[in-house]
């Protein structure tokens, strides 16, 4: 399952999407908005994307992961718009017969997503000032 949504992400949505009767391992990653990054306090993150291309890239990551590992399910959900502190901006879930493929595919998916999927975030601080987050200047998520 691949999805972009402006609605809050429920963890169950992602893990339910990869449920399979032959799964012995179900792995879930949630990226959430962090309040403090060093001495910088974040109020919320605001995401925008190039929707058509983001969906295409997410689907390619899904397909590549399914080819690289013996997975039973892959789910990537990315939230758009404002994501307040503590809420989830990204959910990645994978399932497999045994735990090793899931433990390898999960980090690969989130790392690749951060490199290739055209999504951008602005960090909004407590004063309401916004800054585009650059990979060289990481923002308030993992």
């Amino acid at each position: 399952m691949i999805k972009l949504t402006e609605q809050p992400i429920q963890a169950e949505q992602a893990i339910d999407a990869v449920a399979h009767c032959n799964a012995g391992a179900n792995l879930l990653f949630l990226g959430t908005t962090r309040q403090w990054t060093g001495d910088q306090e974040t109020r919320e993150l605001k995401y925008e994307c190039y929707q058509e291309m983001a969906l295409k890239q997410m689907q390619q990551l899904h397909d590549q992961a399914m080819e690289k590992w013996p997975l039973l399910g892959v789910c990537i959900i990315h939230r758009l718009g404002c994501v307040p502190v503590g809420e989830t901006s990204i959910a990645v879930a994978v399932s497999s017969g045994h735990r090793q493929p899931a433990f390898e595919a999960g980090p690969w998916l989130i790392d690749r997503l951060k490199q290739v999927v055209p999504v951008w975030k602005q960090e909004i601080n407590q004063q309401g000032d916004s800054t585009w987050v650059h990979p060289l200047n990481p923002g308030a998520t993992s």
Binding site: G31, Y50, W120, H134, P135
Partner: peptide, 26 residues
């Protein structure tokens, strides 16, 4: 047309070009 390209990629009439700043999803 929603695929990453390089400087040598040939453009066609009516194609859709995206200018992609460093991405920061997740």
């Amino acid at each position: 047309d929603q695929e990453y390209s390089d400087d040598s990629t040939v453009l066609k009439e009516g194609c859709e070009v995206g200018v992609i700043p460093p991405v920061s999803g997740g």
